[in-house]
Amino acid sequence: MATINETQDELIEEFGLFEDWADKYEYLIDLGKKLSPMNDAFKTEENVIKGCQSKVWLHAEKQGDQVVFFADSEAIIVKGMISMLIRVLSNHTAAEIMQADLYFIDQIGMSQHLAQTRSNGLVAMVKQMKNYAIAFHAIA
């Protein structure tokens, strides 16, 4: 299993292959479409993060000593972002997730989607992923 930073570096390399923004976004949209569907049972009011324009659902659970995330969104580009965040952070220990520095978003040129603080719920989602890790860490 790759470390958090190894996965981030992989993503940076993948995005490095694209010539222009359209290719990047087509890839992101594709990632969004392929995101494993979230069990409807997890799409509860407690799991929803309301952006001003679109919603994100996030659920986390502990499997062994690892934290596993499940998430979904109404918007496909946000789903693509979610897919990458899950690929980077899911299946790591709570301690690893808490300490993770998510530098890949900036490096692949997608920080715009985290800058739109209120519109899409992504910033709150990243924070919530960390909060889950903190909570799991505390009870471990």
């Binding site: 976004y25 001003c52 679109s54 580009i77 946000v78 519109s119 899409n120």
Partner: peptide, 22 residues
């Protein structure tokens, strides 16, 4: 089948500024 936010994000890449949302 398309969320307005996705349209807004991509149109911006084409230099087009519209508003999406409620």
């Amino acid at each position: 089948g398309v969320h307005p936010q996705d349209i807004g994000v991509l149109l911006d890449k084409f230099g087009v500024a519209i508003r999406t949302g409620h």
